[in-house]
Design a protein around this nucleic acid. Structure first.
Lengths: 189, 189
DNA sequence: ATATTCATTGAATAAATATTCAACAGACAG
DNA sequence: CTGTCTGTTGAATATTTATTCAATGAATAT
């Protein structure tokens, strides 16, 4: 293994363990030494790769912003279909790639008051809820999405997903919903 | 005002401001001095009333446990009706009594890994999800609740509520769902 | 009146935890 | 080989934040 490869591997190792701990225990509750211990490395090494705890957080939020933007690219014939596609993807990921589910939780946390200001600003630069609001309005005009305040519908849908992701991050053995149960929040009956 | 009254008022004042800050900023992110400043009192006074930050947390969780147990007493002709009653109550409270909504969020946080162990244990002593599971099974036999893994249904419903409460605690101006949207997670169509 | 209790303060101390740093070992280049 | 670079360590330091405490004055009791 070349040094470059080794370096990248360590960086990822640290990043993903930090993600896991930030999400399960909370950012402030996670000590740098917790991350180091979980990886069996020294705290010094951790600071060799990331200059501060906050830098680690920032790096993760950058990843999350990128991921969210990508998911917004998802193509679909109609708006409801967009939500089905994205939700299916998330629920499958929740089982197989815990980090996607964790990232989801991290991003929500980063958007709340109490997060470091620069990180919060970055996290708020993507806004699933507002993005989806426009889609919902379209879906309502074509009649596939139920009537009602589009902002409230969007908020409700994403908060429901959020709640589930959060719970699943803390209690991974818990059963996940069938996608239809959540799509029904939006779907015209 | 008698001294006893004054004392109780201060204790409540501190307790409710702590609840607000613990929920909006996060427990670990909230400094004792944040609470003191928000109330225009000294940190010393805060320690005069509560012997530690954790004691404050514990006190709040005790309140929450009590509240949850009370809400479980809610009577209803059929299981679906129970959920409608409780949900209506919560959504109305979310608008008028922010602290109920905040308490909801606090309790969920206290149940997760990362919370102090004694507090976590206490918080886990009430379990909305398990309690509701039994009701859901009953509702399924009488045909008012849809088919599907009762545990997953219960988890999904409460996580959805949780997600909304959390969002609303952080962004109170946000529109709340119509109760029916969430009841539809459970309701047989 | 006088003594006692209690709410209150904020500066001093303690504890927790993030961050720095000097030293060492192995990889790699010349 | 020999020297430089880089990964690694863990103990020392700095910083943040919880907690203590001695002092003050106002309320209450005797």
């Amino acid at each position: 293994m070349t040094r470059k490869e080794q370096k990248e591997m360590r960086q990822k190792q640290i990043l993903f363990k930090a993600l896991e701990l930030f999400v399960t225990k909370g950012y402030a509750e996670t000590k740098i030494s917790d991350i180091a211990e979980a990886l069996n490395i020294s705290v010094g090494l951790l600071f060799h790769y990331y200059e501060s705890k906050e830098a680690l957080y920032l790096e993760l939020v950058k990843m999350g912003v990128q991921g969210t933007k990508n998911s917004e690219q998802a193509k679909a014939e109609n708006p409801l279909n967009y939500f089905e596609t994205v939700l299916d993807g998330l629920l499958i990921a929740a089982k197989n790639k815990p980090w996607i589910c964790q990232m989801f939780v991290l991003m929500a946390g980063a958007q709340r008051p109490g997060a470091p200001e620069n990180i919060r600003t970055l996290a708020l630069s993507v806004d699933q809820i507002r993005f989806s609001e426009a889609l919902i309005i379209r879906g309502q005009t074509t009649g596939v999405i139920k009537k009602g305040d589009p902002k409230a519908l969007s908020t409700t849908f994403w908060c429901a997903v959020q709640g589930i992701m959060e719970y699943h991050a803390a209690f991974p053995e818990t059963p996940l919903p069938e996608p239809g149960w959540l799509i029904n929040i939006l779907k015209k009956t």
